[in-house]
Amino acid sequence: MVRAVSAAETAARTYAWAIQADGLRVRAGRRMAVDGLDLAMDTGVHGLLGPNGAGKTTLVRSIATVLRPAGGTLTLLGEQVNGRVDLRGLRRQIGYLPQEFGYYRRFTVREFVEYMAWLKEMPSAETPGAVQRAIERVGLADRADDRMKTLSGGMLRRAGIAQAIVNDPRILLLDEPTAGLDPDQRLQFRALLRELGTDTCVLVSTHLVEDVAAACTDVVLMDAGRLVFQGAPAGLAAAAGADTGAGDSAAERGYSAILRRHRETEA
């Protein structure tokens, strides 16, 4: 199915980066979970890696315009996010799959994605087509009219991705999307990611280094709320060097080597 391209989509961009953070600080509870982060990302698939508690989810929630930055600046699609900006226009261009993806058990997949499309203020004439397209892209077309409570964990994740992409976002935030997917579904998901990354800024938070190495054009590594490394997946593998750190693949060894070196210089 071919989607109509609107004038707004082909208009010239007036910003350099889809997501840009300068000295960003975001609080999670009492802790400063993101603490002085500098980051710039544009179209492509960006894998956000880091140990548990590194501030990945807090960063994603602040880019989803759920949390207010405590300091620094966050600029999305050329608009600085603070108290005053018109968030509605910005939010229409963001897709978000939270880490704890909640859903309505009695809704069918189609009803749920339609409800989300309504929340995203999509024109009602376009909604049914967009919903069907999103469901087909995640490979759930044969279960579209089944209730959510009958779906397996992997299917629920895919329904979550469908609601995130239903509005054709320019910024797509996926927090731990591969949790609960079987190996075959992970391969399909990587193909979908590559496809989405051709015209969208996709940020995928994960702790599976091999997902990042396989599907991402860019790796962002965080530790303790700061940026430790940003570069191509090959750079992550190269960072291992002669270092024989923990890990089964070159990318995993690079991941642990970079983290260890960073922690040694911090200490």
């Binding site: 759920v66 509605r88 226009g89 939010r91 859903y103 989300m116 929340l119 995203k120 609601q163």
Partner: peptide, 15 residues
């Protein structure tokens, strides 16, 4: 009390 609250507050219609 709302399982999709996180999605609702990030949506344009929130308000």
């Amino acid at each position: 009390l709302d399982p999709v609250h996180e999605l609702v507050v990030a949506s344009p219609r929130a308000g």
